[in-house]
């Protein structure tokens, strides 16, 4: 006697919104699962009219993509939500931002333009800024040049199934060394391949090629995420949606 839910199926998705948010300060230590929980609860508190999947355990329609690793800060995390009633994107942004803890700040919210393709497809590279306190800028620069001169740099990456050797070089599109307030800074653009090359893999590669070992834990910030453009930088992934502005027809705004 299998039970099925009584009543009509849940209302369909009538609008898709794409949002950019941050992971700042101490909240850089949140994992992608921590963030997902926080976002879902904040959506409930902000009373955003989410669309739900059907069945006995309905789930809100949310897609997360390309989460920054635990411990890395981010200015450019993205997710997409499906709504059961049309809303003004800016009002959703404001309501959601207000109900999230400081550090998770919702910076942008745009309506997904139909036929413009999936957001995940537009996220194929990241620009990381890695602050390396205690590292000499000259040493860093030399190490980076050495890394860029190689074709393959194998590093051991910790995965669910133990340590695994990966090539950390192929994903690196470009790297630049600067200094700010006496602190060496590495800006690196990394293509999102599988397995993902993360800032700690880049640091491991620098250790392999030049024995660069920072005395203090590096601090990584994802500055931008998007499609690689011709100049080797990353393009705004919400650009294609922003280009076509559609005004909401019937507004049902979150309280």
């Amino acid at each position: 006697m299998a039970r099925t839910p009584d009543g009509p199926p849940p209302p369909p998705t009538v609008q898709k919104l794409r949002l950019r948010y941050t992971k700042r300060g101490p909240l850089r230590f949140a994992s992608h699962r921590d963030l997902a929980r926080a976002l879902e609860r904040a959506l409930r508190r902000a009373q955003v009219p989410m669309a739900f999947s059907a069945g006995f355990s309905p789930h809100p329609k949310i897609s997360y993509m390309g989460a920054a690793p635990t411990g890395a800060a981010s200015e450019a995390e993205y997710f997409e939500i499906g709504l059961s009633a049309r809303c003004d994107p800016e009002q959703v942004r404001r309501a959601l931002d207000a109900s999230l803890p400081p550090g998770i700040d919702v910076l942008e919210c745009v309506e997904a333009v139909e036929g413009s393709g999936s957001l995940a497809d537009r996220l194929d590279a990241t620009r990381w800024r890695i602050d390396l306190p205690g590292v000499d800028t000259g040493d860093l620069d030399a190490a980076v040049q050495e890394l860029l001169s190689r074709d393959v740099v194998t590093v051991a990456k910790r995965t669910k199934n133990g340590l695994r050797d990966i090539d950390a070089r192929a994903a690196v599109v470009g790297a630049e060394v600067t200094e700010e307030a006496g602190c060496a800074i590495l800006t690196v653009v990394v293509r999102q391949l599988t397995p993902t090359v993360r800032p700690d893999d880049v640091m491991a590669a620098l250790a392999v090629v030049a024995d660069l070992r920072p005395p203090l834990p590096p601090r990584a910030v994802r500055e931008a995420q998007g499609r690689l453009d011709d100049s080797g930088d990353v393009a705004d992934p919400l650009g294609p949606d922003r280009a076509v502005r559609s005004s909401p027809q019937e507004e049902s705004t979150p309280v």
Partner: peptide, 8 residues
């Protein structure tokens, strides 16, 4: 607030 017609 946020109640919707579906029964789930």
């Amino acid at each position: 607030v946020g109640a919707r017609p579906q029964v789930d």
